[in-house]
Design a protein around this nucleic acid. Structure first.
Lengths: 228, 228
DNA sequence: AAAAAACTTACAATCGCTGTAAGTTTTTTT
DNA sequence: AAAAAAACTTACAGCGATTGTAAGTTTTTT
C-alpha cells in the first residue's frame, strides 16, 4: 500500500484530506507543523508528500525544495493562493504537481495517482547534477543513455552523492567498499577511484572527483572554483 | 535540444504553439492530422508530444492511448473542453499533463519543462504490466526494487514485451540472442528461457512465459485464460 | 632535495554468465 | 498403452568482466 504524508496546518482541512485519501486506499500520515519538517518527512520516507502551502512559519516552498534536494520523493502542492508566480516557482523548484483549492476530490485523487504512477521504479534513484544513479543496481542514467556501473564504482559514486559537496574521507570510502575502515588498503581504494574517474570522463559527466590533500576527496562541478 | 511534436489541426493555434515552443528553445515539429498519427508519432520519437484534443476524425484520447501503450514518450494534452470527465479519463489512460485553453504561455512552458525533467533517464524504459525494463542495461524495476538482468534474459524479456500478447516464435528469440535464426540451437534457447522464467518467479512478477506447442512462447498474465 | 601523497599500469585470481551435454518429464499422436 | 515429439532440468566447463595486488611513476608539499 502506498504511503502519503499530508502536511497541512488547518485542522479541518487536514482531517478531510486524511479521510479522502484513506478511503482511496492510501496509508495516510498527517503531520502538523514543527521545526525540521523536511528532515522528518525524509525519515518517514513516504511514497508521496501532499503539501499545503499556506503555512504559518516556514514557507512551503522551502520544505519542498529541501525534500527535493535530498530525495526522489514526489511532492504535490495544494494551495489556495492562485497566483501564476507561485505556480511557476513551485514547478521550478521541482514540485511534481500544483493544485489550487477548491479542488474537486476526483481531480486531486487522479493527479495523485498520476504522479505516483510516473514514479514507479524511481524509488531508489539518487539525483546528481545532470544524471541519476540507481542505488540498488548502480545503473547510471545520463544524456538519455544508461550504463550499469561496476559495483565498486557505483558504491563510490553513491558515497559522493550522499555526501553532497562535502569532503569525503578515505575511511568513508573504504567503509562503503569493504564494510570496514579497519584495515585500509590505500592502494586498492586508489585504483578503484581511478577507475571511477575514468568512466566519469568517458561518460562526459559534468563533475570531477578532486583530491583534498590529507583529508580525502570531493565531488566538484567541472570548471568549479576558479582560483587563478 | 529536446524535440517536441505538436498535434493540432487548427492552423492559427498550431503556428502560435510552434512559435512559442521554438522561442523557448525546443525543436518543434507540427503535424496535421492524417491516418495512423500514433504510428507516425512513434517513428518521430520526440522527447514529448503536445496533443490537442479537439480533433476532427480520431479522438485525441485514442492517439494518447496508442502512444502510451507502445512507448514511454510523455504526452501533454491541451484542450478547450474543460470537463472533469475528460481530465480524469486523460490522466487515467496515461497522459502526463492535462491543460485547458486558454492557457497562459508561462504555465504551458513550465508544465512542459516539468514533465520533461521528470522523464530524464526514462528514454529507454519499456513498460510491462507492473514493471519497467531498461532496454540498454536490462535493469528491471519492480515492486520498488531493481535488478540488472543478465544480458540474455534481458533480451528475451525485451522481445516478449515488444511482441505484446502475441506468440513469439523461437526464431524471433534466437534472432534476439544471437543475431541469426540460421543455426538454431534449440537447447541453448531452452536453457536461457528457463533461466528467465526462474528469475521472473523469484521476482514475483505477475506474468509467466507459457509454451505454445509447435509455435513458440507467449507472455501471459498470471491466472490468465481459465480453461477448466 | 627529500618526503608524503596521489596516481598509473599490468597481471593474476575470482565470480558470474553462457553454451554444452546428457539426461528426464510432459504432452501429443498412433 | 506405447511411441514420438516437444519441452524442460541439471551439472559442468569455458569465457569475460571486475577486482585486488604489486611495483612502479608523478605530483605536491615541506
Amino acid at each position: 500500500m502506498k504511503r502519503i504524508v499530508v502536511v497541512e496546518d488547518e485542522v479541518f482541512m487536514r482531517e478531510e484530506l486524511e479521510n479522502l485519501l484513506q478511503k482511496a486506499g492510501y496509508e495516510v500520515h498527517a503531520v502538523d507543523l514543527f521545526e525540521h519538517v523536511a528532515k522528518n518527512l525524509l525519515e518517514m520516507s513516504p511514497n508521496l508528500i501532499l503539501l499545503d502551502i499556506n503555512l504559518p512559519n516556514l514557507s512551503g516552498f522551502q520544505i519542498c525544495r529541501e525534500v527535493k534536494q535530498r530525495s526522489p520523493i514526489p511532492v504535490v502542492i495544494l494551495t489556495s493562493r492562485d497566483q501564476m508566480r507561485d505556480e511557476l516557482h513551485a514547478l521550478d523548484i521541482g514540485a511534481d504537481e500544483y493544485l489550487t483549492k477548491p479542488c474537486r476530490k476526483e481531480r486531486l485523487l487522479a493527479r495523485i495517482a498520476n504522479v505516483l504512477k510516473r514514479y514507479e521504479g524511481r524509488a531508489n534513484l539518487l539525483e546528481g547534477e545532470g544524471f541519476l544513479l540507481d542505488r540498488q543496481t548502480y545503473t547510471l542514467y545520463i544524456h538519455d543513455a544508461s550504463v550499469v556501473l561496476p559495483k565498486n564504482q557505483g558504491k563510490l559514486l553513491e558515497v559522493f552523492l550522499l555526501g553532497g559537496q562535502k569532503v569525503v574521507t578515505k575511511e568513508d570510502l573504504c567503509d562503503a567498499l569493504w564494510g570496514t575502515s579497519e584495515f585500509i588498503d590505500e592502494n586498492a581504494l586508489q585504483v578503484n577511484l581511478t577507475r571511477l574517474k575514468k568512466t566519469m570522463t568517458n561518460l562526459q559527466m559534468h563533475q570531477k572527483i578532486v583530491p583534498v590533500r590529507g583529508a580525502g576527496y570531493r565531488l566538484m562541478m567541472e570548471g568549479g572554483p576558479d582560483e587563478a
